[in-house]
């Protein structure tokens, strides 16, 4: 099992797989963004209560979902680092953090821009907003810890522990709107129920969410692949890949 896992996650294998996903998810993201933006800006109705400002939802909710999804990805990758010492997983976890922080910031900022016209306030200290802000600090802490420790493997393990402990914040964010009295509205879409919203709104939200996910896959793999290439530049497979064409000279 262990040997199989290491072979599967070998740097060379990772490089090939990443290339495959970067290409196809890249095209997927383009198509999804094009159709998602068309739906969210032109082909979906204004909300009967919130008017046109509902269109902020198509950025805000996908960003917030990504912020949690990326954290879970980072924590799982960290688990692979801690338990099986897989280098590619460390590269993925490291690449996740700035992207996760970016989407958390985007969720907070667009939430603010939505809150101002709807609630009359840029910010309120309620459970949802506060726990999302804590998520931002978790990402920043992870990045700080990574750069504070010189030895990259030790840094990945230390930050990995932080990532795994911090995952407790994810269900808190998710259920915060149910556990506490809050200004923030409840979940727009749940897995267990049929969506209560208009079909075109639902399509807009799904398209944009998928576009954000695909974007993340491409962005994270590009960064992780670069890091692996840099670390592995003296290994045989990199020499074969980049030096092979020059043997004729």
């Amino acid at each position: 099992m262990l040997a199989w896992l290491h072979r599967l996650a070998s740097p060379k294998r990772f490089h090939g797989l990443a290339g495959f996903f970067i290409t196809w998810c890249g095209w997927g993201a383009l198509v999804l963004f094009a159709s998602g933006l068309y739906y969210s800006l032109f082909n979906s109705p204004p909300d009967y209560q919130q008017g046109e400002s509902i269109r902020i939802m198509y950025i805000h909710v996908p960003a917030a979902w990504n912020s949690m999804f990326i954290y879970i990805t980072m924590a799982i990758a960290s688990l692979f680092v801690l338990v099986w010492r897989i280098k590619a997983a460390a590269a993925v976890a490291r690449a996740c953090a700035p992207l996760g922080a970016m989407f958390t910031f985007l969720a907070l900022a667009t939430g603010s821009l939505w809150g101002k016209p709807m609630w009359g306030a840029w910010w309120v200290w309620d459970a949802r907003l506060t726990s999302e802000l804590i998520l931002l600090f978790l990402y920043l802490g992870f990045m700080a810890l990574q750069s504070a420790i010189e030895d990259k493997d030790a840094a990945a393990r230390a930050a990995g522990v932080l990532a795994i402990v911090g995952i407790i914040n994810i269900p808190i964010i998710y259920y915060s709107v149910e556990w506490w009295n809050t200004l923030h509205q409840g979940a727009t879409i749940t897995l267990s129920e049929k969506p209560k919203m208009n079909t075109d709104m639902f399509i807009s939200l799904i398209l944009m969410s998928l576009a954000f996910k695909f974007y993340f896959v491409v962005a994270v793999l590009r960064k992780a692949r670069n890091e692996m290439l840099e670390r592995e530049q003296n290994s045989q497979w990199v020499k074969e890949m980049l030096g092979g064409s020059d043997e004729r000279k």
Binding site: L41, P46, G51, E52, S53, R55, I56, I59, H60, A63, L106, A109, T110, L113, W114, K116, P117
Partner: peptide, 14 residues
């Protein structure tokens, strides 16, 4: 519908 600023800043920021 009057929300242009908030909407366009959101999309622009993204």
């Amino acid at each position: 519908g009057g929300h242009g600023f908030y909407i366009w800043v959101s999309y622009g920021l993204a």
